[in-house]
């Protein structure tokens, strides 16, 4: 099983693997926002948690269709389905690889982008923590969406349409943690709810993803 994870990481890191694209996209969004809303520090500081969460979410979305599409095109997915790995393990590892190559770099880079957005000092810890807890849910949900649309040509737009509504609760609680943290308010409630969504998604969604992937391979 670990072999699949290592292979996916290798593929992402080598030429054309798309590693870092999400991060660059996140950077661009963060740079564009002040151009759109004006450079006033107070305003930027106020919207920073929300914008950073939204940027991370969109950066995550951008790379979702790569989760299965490449393996589908070159036939690896068919071969993997006949291999001794349960489909649930395949989708879980795929989601983990996606998080390690997209979510984790976003979490680590978030403080830097917070700086660009004049995020208040108290906010950094909560921003990073909320992203660290929330982005796994984004990856797992995205894997489900990618499994749904794997066989479709031009499935990218459909994938966004399917996945974005599923992202709503995660975004709400995640951004709420970051916002309350930046304002020095109590963050326990949204933090626990966010963690609940992430744990629930990781525990249950691989079954749904595996089921739809099997249907799509039929």
């Amino acid at each position: 099983m670990i072999a699949l994870l290592i292979r996916d990481l290798k593929l992402a890191l080598r030429a054309g693997g798309g590693f870092g694209l999400g991060l660059a996209f996140f950077l661009i969004v963060t740079v564009l926002v002040p151009f759109a809303v004006g450079p006033e520090t107070g305003l930027l500081a106020r919207i920073a948690p929300g914008i950073l969460w939204l940027g991370a979410l969109l950066a995550c979305l951008l790379s979702l269709d790569r989760i299965f599409a490449l393996d589908w095109e070159d036939g690896t997915l068919d071969l993997m389905a006949t291999a001794p790995l349960p489909m649930e393990a395949i989708v879980t590892l795929k989601a983990l690889a996606h998080w390690l190559t997209t979510g984790l770099p976003l979490v680590l880079a978030a403080p830097l982008f917070g700086l660009l957005m004049s995020l208040p000092g108290e906010g950094y810890l909560w921003l990073v923590l909320s992203l660290a807890i929330g982005t796994p849910a984004l990856s797992v949900l995205g894997t489900f969406g990618a499994a749904l649309t794997v066989g479709l040509k031009r499935g990218g737009l459909l994938l966004s349409l399917l996945v974005l509504p599923l992202y709503v609760p995660t975004l709400i609680f995640g951004a709420e943690v970051a916002r309350r943290g930046a304002q020095g308010l109590a963050v326990e409630a949204p933090l626990l709810l966010l963690a609940g969504i992430t744990c629930g998604s990781i525990a249950l969604l691989p079954f749904a993803s595996a089921a739809v992937l099997r249907v799509n391979l039929r």
Binding site: P165, L166, V168, P169, I172, A189, L193, I197
Partner: peptide, 12 residues
């Protein structure tokens, strides 16, 4: 997730 969103939105 629609149900979750309902409660999330209430919270928000």
């Amino acid at each position: 997730f629609a149900l979750l969103s309902r409660y999330a939105v209430n919270f928000w």
